[in-house]
Simulated assay, not measured.
Amino acid sequence: MGRHRRGAKREVTVADLIDELRRFDPRMEVRLAVQPRMPQEHAVGTVVEADGMVWIADAGQRGYAPDEVGERLGWI
């Protein structure tokens, strides 16, 4: 799905997300990384369809993401 580039609009489809996730052990937990300047770790919540899109809910902050996460995402 590529690295984040400031100002670049990039839409991710369900197929894109499935393809990316296939690389990993299906038993692994999933987290969302948010806030590039101080990466936080958030749990994934409910997944629903509405308004012609799939929505993934944030299930709350779990702490701060390790430096390695920001590095691999190209944030630091």
Rank of each mutant, 00 (worst) to 15 (best):
P36Q: 13
V48R: 12
V14R: 13
R62S: 06
G7Q: 05
Y64K: 03
A57H: 11
K9R: 15
R62E: 03
E41V: 01
D67W: 10
P26H: 00
T46L: 07
R10Y: 11
L73S: 02
P26T: 00
Q40K: 09
T46D: 07
A15H: 05
I56H: 05
A8L: 15
R31Q: 07
E71P: 06
L73E: 01
F24V: 05
V14M: 04
M28H: 08
G70N: 03
P39C: 09
E49A: 06
D67P: 15
P66E: 09
G63H: 02
L73C: 06
A43W: 10
D25L: 01
D51R: 12
L32W: 07
T46Q: 09
L73Y: 03
V14D: 14
W75K: 02
L73M: 08
R3E: 15
R6A: 14
Q40L: 11
Q35A: 15
R23S: 12
V30N: 04
P39D: 13
T46P: 06
W55S: 02
D25W: 03
R27S: 13
A50K: 10
Q35C: 14
V12L: 10
E71R: 14
R22Y: 04
G45E: 00
R72N: 04
R3Q: 13
R22G: 01
A59M: 07
R22N: 07
P26G: 00
I56P: 03
L32S: 03
G2Q: 10
